[in-house]
Nucleic acid binder design. Structure first.
Length: 102
DNA sequence: GCAGTGACTAGTA
DNA sequence: ATACTAGCCACTG
């Protein structure tokens, strides 16, 4: 397991319920500025035994990023809504309201 | 080693 | 406001 993945997982684990963080934000907090794409890749490759709130990481536009299997996007939105995160009519989150401020 | 890929982003039009 | 672009960089075959 790559240590950078562990750093990313550690940061994601800190995001409180009801808030979200962007890929770039997670990368920067993990000490890996400019590695936003790797955050997405790391989450995609998260082992089942590593349990982290992956649903709280969204893109810089406040929306859930498209992936190969859309079913995970639907799951992500439902998980966030269950935590109190509100989506607008275009499926976007107001980052001014819900972004995590560590 | 090289080329393709992707849960990204900031800039430009 | 949306659409496209270039830059990004670890992973994979």
């Amino acid at each position: 397991m790559h240590s950078n993945y562990q750093k990313i997982y550690a940061v994601v684990a800190l995001i409180p319920a009801g808030t979200v963080a962007t890929y770039g934000q997670v990368a920067a907090l993990a000490g890996l500025p400019g590695h936003a794409r790797q955050v997405g890749y790391a989450l995609h490759a998260t082992p089942r035994d590593v349990q982290i709130p992956w649903q709280r990481v969204i893109n810089a536009r406040g929306e859930i990023s498209r992936r190969s299997d859309p079913v995970f996007g639907d799951l992500q939105r439902r998980l966030l809504e269950a935590e109190g995160v509100v989506f607008d009519e275009k499926g976007r989150v107001d980052l001014r309201r819900f972004r995590w401020h560590p």
